[in-house]
Design a protein around this nucleic acid. Structure first.
Lengths: 194, 194, 194, 194
DNA sequence: TATGAATGAGTCTTCATTCAT
DNA sequence: AATGAATGAAGACTCATTCAT
């Protein structure tokens, strides 16, 4: 299976990118981690950059599908928020390294390299899903009317994705537990109701 | 004032580091932005790394002082949280570039370079301030008893600092407004109380 | 004089390119010949390719000027041929290495690299000068009517430029002597008139 | 027929070498053009260099035989020149790629690689045939007495072989026509006799 | 005969840093 | 204080070649 080998190598590369940052990662580090010589990676991939590309686009494709499934279910705003958050933490669980890379590198990649233009597209698409849901929630009286929607969106987005930087799959908390804790905080706040 | 010139150069360097990432930034880019030649920076600084060092430690010194002032005021847990968050957004307002660099680079710098060990110290110190406050809040019944304290701390910490990546000083929202919106979300949740 | 240094380095590079071929020449060989380290060349030039570019375009600019001066004199066809040939051998005398490189590399460079499109432009321009002169010569009865103009042009062109591969400036024959011998052959043939 | 396959592969290799130059040609380009994988070529040939070797020596063997046949006919100097030129253009017709490679690469191969020493031998042999014929022609009063024999030889040699760089078999001119045009130019000149 | 995967040496290029002026 | 020219180490990438299957 040629596909199998590629996937292994990409998984290895993603771990190294996530650990050291894309720029600070040398092709040799990836090769060492994968157990072959640096030059041999070029039998499988065009360049270091195209490895990054495949890692990010595989993750984004899956995330997009997940978000679309959630939106297609046409739940109420609160339930949609719950589903988007839960879906996000599941993606972090399955693509931890890719998410960490995305979090660190997406901004300047999208800004400076045409090849990574799809990162900006994805970002806008996800923003649309979130902003729409929040607005709908405010409109129907499920969310507080005094929210700054854009600011809230940023808070929510960042807190979710930044979890990739400390999350370790298989440890202590399952994605669903983290999502639940997180939703409790965001939906109802940490202050005790009086 | 040679000190004055250093500060200017460091501010320039911080902007470039924040925009491109520390590793991806070349000394030449900094020099171009500052209007001199790459080699000339070495009259003012020992190395690229020492520029980073000065930028981060200046920011952390100020942040530490801010946090200590808050804690010294011995406010209640909710008010302490409010003060810490507000102080944090003020730091972002004043040291945006440094915060963005810190957010992106602190983890691996602390882990891999002895010189940056103080980053881990600072991190632990800030964690202590937050965890203590949250615990105290739960203990005295101001915060909900079912919180996972460490998880909540991470949510709060990351969301606050990551704001440096999109915040633009002087635009739309003042630090205090952002802090207020953020506190509303975190303390009371986005869901409308019924 | 920064220009002075560049010119020296380019002259060195041209010699090495001419001796080994562009592709077979390593940047290190050029650097060795110039007495500095390979990386240091990049202080002066963007790339190995841009060295080649400068070498070729400097030569072509001069050649173009020379040809234009000849054409501007509006001599008769035979005298124009004599002047073009003499001018060509003078260029070989002054830019021997560049001519040798041009002779070996121009075709595929022009065909495969947009950057070197000007090589094709120059080729067409020179072809125009030659073809026009030959045609005029046939029309006015100075050259034989049974010539295949294009074929003759190719013979003449190639024989002139290929001389760069064996010509050594300062040795035995001056450019003018070579031109004279050459013109005798081409204009009147090697066979004795009977 | 394993020999058949080899010949096909060598013909393909020769085309690619001629188009891109030996050094700039990768084994993979040859393999692509031949419809197999790069590694598979090594079942047929020892190395890239030995492909070049076979291509050049096959051509030179044939050329040598052709020249020897001409000389063996013991024609007069003018007729010998005519025969040598015609034979040369026939070789270009049949081994266009090999001639183009020879023209471009022979000099430095002969100078730098012992394996290709036979290129220098062949060159000397051909030079002998030409120089002898020209000298004889001058001696018996068929060629002009004021010729610089060596210079004339170079003119003739280069013009003939360089035709390989533009000649396309099967197009417009047959080798015999090209030879005739060329001989007209060289023997009698392009100027109209008055 | 040919493939797929790998090797390892070498190439161009980048860049932090140095230093005489 | 700053420049201009260089160093030298390292990095991405290429490519002829090998070999088990």
């Amino acid at each position: 299976m040629p596909e199998e080998r590629r996937r292994e190598l990409l998984a290895t590369a993603a771990e190294v990118f996530a650990a050291h940052g894309y720029n600070a990662t040398t092709v040799r580090q990836i090769a060492d981690a994968a157990g072959l010589l640096a030059g041999s990676l070029y039998y499988h991939f065009d360049s270091k950059e195209s490895m990054l590309d495949e890692i990010l686009s595989a993750f984004l494709d899956e995330l997009r599908a997940g978000y679309e499934a959630v939106l297609a279910a046409r739940l109420g705003p609160r339930e949609t928020v719950e589903a988007l958050v839960t879906e996000s933490f599941r993606e972090i669980d399955r693509h931890r390294a890719a998410v960490a890379i995305y979090q660190k590198e997406a901004r300047h990649l999208a800004a400076r390299q045409p090849r990574f233009g799809y990162l900006a597209d994805a970002r806008d698409k996800f923003a649309g899903a979130w902003l729409g849901t929040l607005e709908r929630g405010v409109a129907v009286g499920v969310f507080r009317a005094d929210l700054d929607i854009r600011l809230t969106y940023r808070f929510v987005r960042d807190t979710v994705w930044v979890a990739a930087s400390w999350y370790r799959p298989g440890a202590q908390h399952s994605p669903e537990e983290i999502a639940r804790q997180y939703l409790t905080t965001v939906l109802d706040g940490i202050a005790l109701r009086n």
